[in-house]
Design a protein around this nucleic acid. Structure first.
Lengths: 343, 343
DNA sequence: ACTCTCACCCAAAGCGCTTTGGACACGACT
DNA sequence: AGTCGTGTCCAAAGCGCTTTGGGTGAGAGT
C-alpha cells in the first residue's frame, strides 16, 4: 500500500493525504481523521527512501566501528556507547547506520556514506593521535561529532571527550597522597588519543611532585584482562616492584588484581589499584555503594547521549559551527586503594 | 554531482552512463573507460536512496539491539557479533541499520523497518523463551535470521544457534567425570532461550547419572562479574558448598574465581570452574594455548559471519525457505577444572 | 543493392514521496 | 455587486536513479 493507492481508496489526492499525515494545517480536521484511520487500517508506512529523496533528509546518522585487522579487538565500549546514542536518536526519529571500517579503506567509507545520501551526519569513534580522518570528514562536508579528540589538531571540529588528562592526574595524585612512590601505569594502546592523554596526566602528576617516572612501570596494550594480569605480574616480579597500579580500564584492573592475589598479596593493603571505569552496563564496578575499585568514573553511555544530541543540533543548524563538550570524570573511592605499605 | 550532470559533462545520456558504471555489456569498453574516469575525477557516487528506489533493493540489513529498560544491561556479546556480521555484509556491499528496541514498541520497530523499505532483511538477537517476535517477523514477510532459537516454536523460521544444551551437558559430564557431585550452575537470565537450554543440559547430565540437582546450587541473573562473585560466594558459604561451578560466561567465571580466592581456596584444586566462552575479542580466555578456564567455546564473531551469510542467501532467494545452522561448541580444557577433592 | 545483424546509444517512464503553485467555493467586508 | 480573504483540496513537477523499448549507422551476408 503506497501513498497513491491510499489516496485513491480515499478519493483524495496524494497531496492531501500526505499533508494530512504530516500534520500540515491546510487540511480539515475531519479529513485528517479519516486519512489517519485509513492509514492505520491499511498499515500504511511511507517509504523512507522516497521520502528521503524528496525531502533531502535521511533521518539517519552514521556510526563507524573501527575494526583494525581481522583478529583485532572490538572496542568493548562500543555497545554501551551505541545504546546511549541510540536512545537519544531513536527518540528523535533517527536511525543508525553502522559501518565497519578497516584501516585501509577508511577514506572511501566516509566518502560514500555521505555521498550516497544515506546519512545526515556521523559520529566518529576512537580517534588516534594525529588522526587524518578529521580532515577527511571536513572535506566531505557532512556534520560530524568526534567521540574523543585528536591532539595534533586545532579545534575546528566538534568533539565530546572526557578530560582524560585531568582524570589520570587526579588518580595519580590520589595515590601519591597515600604515600605511593612507585606507581605503575597499565595504559591502553597509546596510539589512541585518550591513552596518550592519560599518560600525559600520569606523568605530569608525578613530575609536579618532583619525582621521576620509571619506564619499567609503564605498559601499553589493548585493554584486556590478560594484559592486566601479565603486565602487572611482570612488574610485581621486578627487584623494585610498584606499590600501586593505575589501570586504564576495569578489565585491566581485574587482571592486575588477579596477578596481585596470585602472589599472595592483597589489593588495597599491600598493593593499591586505581582504574578508569567506563560504566559499562555489563561490567559494573561492584555496585554504586560498594565499588570494587577506586576509579575515575565516566559512563560511556552518557557520552553516547551527548554525542548524539550534539550531532542532532549540528544537523538542525550547521551554522552553529564546531561545538565541544568536555566532561570531568569523578573520582570514586573504593577499597582497592590504601596507604603505601611502610618499606 | 549527480548522474544527470555527469552525463551532460560527458555528452552522453544518463542511460549510457548508468550502464557503463554498472557494468552492462551494451556499452563499448572505450566509453566505459571514459565514463569511469570522469566519475572518479568528479567524485561521483550514486545516491543510494534513488538507486534503492529504482531497484527495489535497499542493500542494507537491519539489526535490532534489544535494550530492556533504561538501566538494563547491554548485551556484551553484541559488539563482536556485529563485527562478524559486518565483515561478511560489507564484503558483499551491504550496510547495517541498527535499531534500538525497548520491549514496549518492538512490534512497531520491526514493522516500520521493512515497510519503510530501509532494509532487505534482518537479524534478530537474543530470543526469549516463547518469543512472540518470530510471529511478528513472519507476518511482516521480510527475510530474517534469528541468532538463537525459540524453544516453544516450530522450526518454520531460519535460525543459527550453538547447541547450548549439549555444550552444558558435556561440561557437566566433564565435572562429573572428575568426581564432582555438588556442582553449581551460575546461569544467565533463564527467560533467555539459550540460558533455558543450558539449564536443561545441566540438569539432564546430572539426572542421567542418577544424581539430583540441588536448587540451592542454581542461580540465574544477568551475566556480570559481580553476579558471579556474589552468587558463588553465597554458595561457598553454604553448609554443604559446591566443589565445582559451571558458569554461563567468562565474566561470571571471573566473579566466581574472585569469590573462591577470597575464601582462601584455589581454583582448579579446591574448587573447579567451567565456563562458556563466547570468544569475545576484548575478553579472551587467556591465550589459545594457555587458557584460564576450562570452557565450552564458540566464538560469537563466527556466529555473526554465519548469520549474515544465511540472511544474504535468504535475500537472494527467499524460496530456499527456512534454513537452520546448529554449531557445536568445543570443550577446551584449562587449569580451572580438576579432580574433586576427597571429602 | 538490399536486408539483417550487431554494437552502441538514447528518450522517457517509472520508483514513492514532498512541495510548489494554483483552483474552487464560500462567507465577510466595503 | 464586487473584492478579498480563507479554508480546502488538487495537478504536476521534482528528488536521482534504473530499465524498458526503441533508434541509428556500420559492416556482413545474399
Amino acid at each position: 500500500m503506497n501513498l497513491k493507492d491510499l489516496a485513491a481508496s480515499l478519493g483524495l489526492s496524494q497531496t492531501t493525504v500526505s499533508r494530512a499525515l504530516n500534520g500540515y494545517p491546510e487540511v480539515s480536521e475531519a479529513t485528517r481523521k479519516r486519512v489517519r484511520e485509513a492509514a492505520r487500517v491499511h498499515g500504511y508506512r511511507p517509504d523512507s527512501r522516497a521520502r528521503s529523496l524528496a525531502t533531502g533528509k535521511a533521518m539517519c546518522i552514521g556510526l563507524v566501528l573501527p575494526i583494525s585487522a581481522k583478529q583485532e579487538i572490538v572496542n568493548p565500549v562500543f555497545a554501551d556507547f551505541v545504546a546511549g546514542a541510540g536512545e537519544t536518536l531513536s527518540a528523535r526519529g533517527y536511525d543508525i547506520m553502522l559501518s565497519l571500517v578497516n584501516e585501509e579503506d577508511q577514506s572511501s567509507v566516509y566518502r560514500s556514506m555521505l555521498k550516497k545520501g544515506r546519512v545526515d551526519g556521523l559520529i566518529m569513534q576512537a580517534p588516534l593521535t594525529g588522526d587524518e580522518r578529521i580532515a577527511l570528514l571536513q572535506d566531505v562536508g557532512l556534520p560530524f561529532v568526534v567521540h574523543g579528540r585528536v591532539s595534533d589538531h586545532d579545534d575546528t571540529y566538534s568533539w565530546m571527550d572526557i578530560d582524560n588528562r585531568h582524570a589520570f592526574h587526579r588518580a595519580t595524585d590520589h595515590l601519591l597522597d597515600l604515600g605511593h612512590r612507585r606507581i605503575a601505569l597499565l595504559n591502553g594502546i597509546e596510539a589512541m588519543d585518550f591513552a596518550h592523554r592519560r599518560r600525559d596526566g600520569f606523568l605530569d602528576a608525578i613530575a609536579s611532585r618532583g619525582f621521576r617516572a620509571d619506564e619499567n612501570l609503564m605498559a601499553s596494550a589493548a585493554m584486556t584482562e590478560i594484559y592486566g594480569y601479565e603486565a602487572a605480574g611482570r612488574m610485581l616480579d621486578l627487584p623494585e616492584p610498584p606499590t600501586a597500579f593505575l589501570a586504564s580500564s576495569l578489565l585491566v584492573g581485574m587482571g592486575a588484581h588477579r596477578a596481585i592475589e596470585a602472589r599472595g598479596q592483597r589489593m588495597g593493603h599491600d598493593i593499591s589499584v586505581v582504574i578508569h571505569d567506563d560504566g559499562l552496563s555489563y561490567l559494573p564496578n561492584g555496585s554504586d555503594n560498594v565499588p570494587i575499585f577506586t576509579a575515575t568514573h565516566s559512563p560511556v553511555r552518557d557520552a553516547g547521549h551527548i554525542c548524539a544530541d550534539m550531532l542532532l543540533r549540528l544537523i538542525q543548524n550547521p551554522k552553529i559551527g564546531p561545538i565541544q563538550t568536555k566532561l570531568e570524570a569523578s573520582l570514586r573511592l573504593g577499597p582497592s586503594s590504601g596507604p603505601a605499605p611502610n618499606q
